[in-house]
C-alpha cells in the first residue's frame, strides 16, 4: 500500500470510543474491522456505520461548536427526533446553515454572536449526512449525520496519511455496513460472520480508494 500507516493509533482511538459508546461491560458478539486507504489525498472525514439499530433514538443530540474560525468537529451524529446544538465559542460572529434539498435539510440560524447557542431539529432524511457551513466564512464546513445506530464510527482523516485501520464491536444480527465519505459514492456492504470484502471507493466515476472490511 502507498502512503503512511496509522493503524495502531486509529485502532486505539476507535477502541476507546467504542468503549465510551457501548459501555465497559458490552458483550457484542462480533467485530467490524478493516482498512480504508486512499490513492491520493484523504478527505477530511468519513463515517462508517451499521444501520438497523435504533439505540440513539431518544438520546441527547450532538453539539457542534465553532472556535478559531473552524467547526471544532468535522462531523457529528444525531438521531431523528433529536436536536443538534450549534454553539459559537469564537470571539466573532458566525452563522450555520444547510441547503441540501435531496436530504430535506434547509435551515439558517442567522447571525450567531459569540457565546450563543442555537438548536436545530434533526428532521431530515434518515441516513443522510448534511453539510453545514457558515455564510460569513465559507471555508468553515462540517457535517451532521442523521443516524440512529449506536454502531458507528467517525473517521477523522489527517493530512498526509492515506491508510487507516478501524475496528469496533457490533452485534451479529446487523449484517450491513455503510461507509459515507464527502463527495464519494456511498458504500453498502453485506457481511456474514467471518466474511471479508474489498470495495472500490469511487468519486465521479473514478476510483480514489479502497475499503477492506471484515466481520470477526
Amino acid at each position: 500500500m502507498n502512503g503512511k500507516y496509522c493503524g495502531l493509533r486509529g485502532m486505539s482511538r476507535l477502541a476507546g470510543l467504542a468503549v465510551l459508546l457501548l459501555g465497559p461491560a458490552s458483550a457484542w458478539s462480533g467485530e467490524i474491522s478493516g482498512t480504508i486507504s486512499f490513492e491520493k489525498k484523504a478527505p477530511v472525514v468519513g463515517l462508517i456505520y451499521l444501520p438497523g439499530d435504533e439505540g440513539l433514538v431518544g438520546k441527547d443530540g450532538p453539539k457542534l461548536d465553532q472556535k478559531d474560525q473552524r467547526f471544532t468537529k468535522p462531523l457529528v451524529v444525531g438521531a431523528r427526533g433529536s436536536k443538534v446544538t450549534f454553539k459559537n465559542s469564537d470571539t466573532i460572529a458566525h452563522n450555520v446553515y444547510a441547503e441540501d434539498t435531496k436530504a430535506g435539510a434547509n435551515f439558517d440560524i442567522g447571525l450567531a454572536p459569540p457565546g450563543s447557542e442555537h438548536e436545530t431539529d434533526i428532521g431530515w432524511k434518515e441516513g443522510m449526512v448534511v453539510q453545514v457551513g457558515c455564510k460569513i466564512h465559507p471555508k468553515m464546513r462540517a457535517w451532521v449525520a442523521n443516524i440512529s445506530s449506536r454502531f458507528h464510527q467517525v473517521l477523522e482523516f489527517e493530512k498526509g496519511i492515506k491508510t487507516y485501520d478501524f475496528a469496533f464491536e457490533a452485534p451479529g444480527n446487523l449484517k450491513e455496513v455503510r461507509v459515507w465519505l464527502p463527495r464519494y459514492d456511498p458504500v453498502m456492504v453485506e457481511l456474514a460472520v467471518g466474511e471479508e470484502k474489498t470495495v472500490d471507493l469511487m468519486k465521479k466515476g473514478k476510483k480514489y480508494g479502497t475499503l477492506l472490511v471484515k466481520r470477526g
Partner: peptide, 25 residues
C-alpha cells in the same frame, strides 16, 4: 478568512453576496 463581510464601502446598493445567498449576514 475566505469570508464575506459588509464593511460599509460604497452606497450600499450592490447586494454583493446577498444576491447569491439570502440571509442577514
Amino acid at each position: 478568512d475566505n469570508g464575506f463581510h459588509n464593511i460599509g464601502v460604497g452606497d450600499g446598493k450592490d447586494p454583493g453576496r446577498g444576491s447569491i445567498l439570502a440571509g442577514v449576514t
